[in-house]
Design a protein around this nucleic acid. Structure first.
Lengths: 145, 145
DNA sequence: ATCATACCCCACCAAAACAGTTGGGAATGG
DNA sequence: CCATTCCCAACTGTTTTGGTGGGGTATGAT
């Protein structure tokens, strides 16, 4: 597994926030029930995202979480990196640790893998996810007719 | 980190075998010294690769490990999957576990990440690595002139 | 005012994965 | 026959994973 539950749960939960963007806060309870995720666990994930400045909160009754930026300004990469740490393959990539650069044929492999992941996660925003989601829902409706 | 030392060490070591393809076996000792990897740890990695049919051994004095196939028939993906397990993002991808497919906008993200990784690791063979390695060495030599 | 709601924060925990280490055994070339 | 080299199983310390538990603070509703 490339991603742990941190990234997987976190991305789902943040997408849920994006569905409610502009409509007020969503409580942890609702999200954790909808996706069957431990409320306390999800809270820890949201704490990281809040500290990173991607979501903000309203405390007290009727409070909850909401995106701190527009869905089009939040990428999947921002969320995953905050929760999972840097999506790197090897310590030698991006650093000059590699003492035998010329010998190291594997380094370029690691770079390619990293780049291919980066290309995907840094390009897709929450707004993009919403657009694609809409299409999927429309198609699902067509099937049911 | 997407890859653990299993995949990173393993790929380096197997590439070393490919450099010696057709020239007889290479001992664990040589490889572990060259790359500064624990000999016993590397042995466990090679055991997996042997059981997968990617490398074979000659026991006894002057013995060692060698590729069981031509470098062009061994991909980076074969090595990494043997050592790291399947390079998946989420259990719902490739399975029908996902109870709320239409709702799950994250699934397509995970599929895209997986596909981008697969595209890289299943396309590159050990022979490809060697070709690229040669070019890097040639350029390094030019620089030194 | 007070109470239920809901976030905030810290500590703790069991299980698994990671990155090895230890040590005994078996095959083989010199 | 012995040094070399692979084979295999068990064990170990550390970190990560995936949570649980509990006390505290803010706030809208009654």
């Amino acid at each position: 597994m490339i991603l742990s539950t941190k990234g997987r749960y976190g991305l789902k939960a943040v997408f849920e926030l994006s569905l409610n963007y502009g409509l007020g806060p969503v409580s942890l309870k609702k999200i954790s029930e909808k996706y069957e995720i431990s409320e306390n666990y999800l809270e820890q994930l949201f704490a990281k995202l809040r500290k990173a400045g991607y979501i903000e909160t309203i405390r007290g009754s009727q409070g909850g979480y909401m995106l701190a930026k527009e869905p089009k300004d939040l990428t999947v990469g921002m969320i995953l990196r905050t929760l999972e740490g840097e999506m790197t393959t090897s310590e030698c990539v991006n650093k000059e640790v590699c003492s035998r650069e010329s010998v190291c044929a594997t380094r370029s492999i690691f770079e390619k893998i990293e780049k291919s992941i980066t290309d995907v996660i840094d390009k897709i925003t929450l707004a993009d996810m919403y657009e694609e989601h809409k299409e999927i829902l429309l198609e699902a409706n067509k099937q049911n007719e």
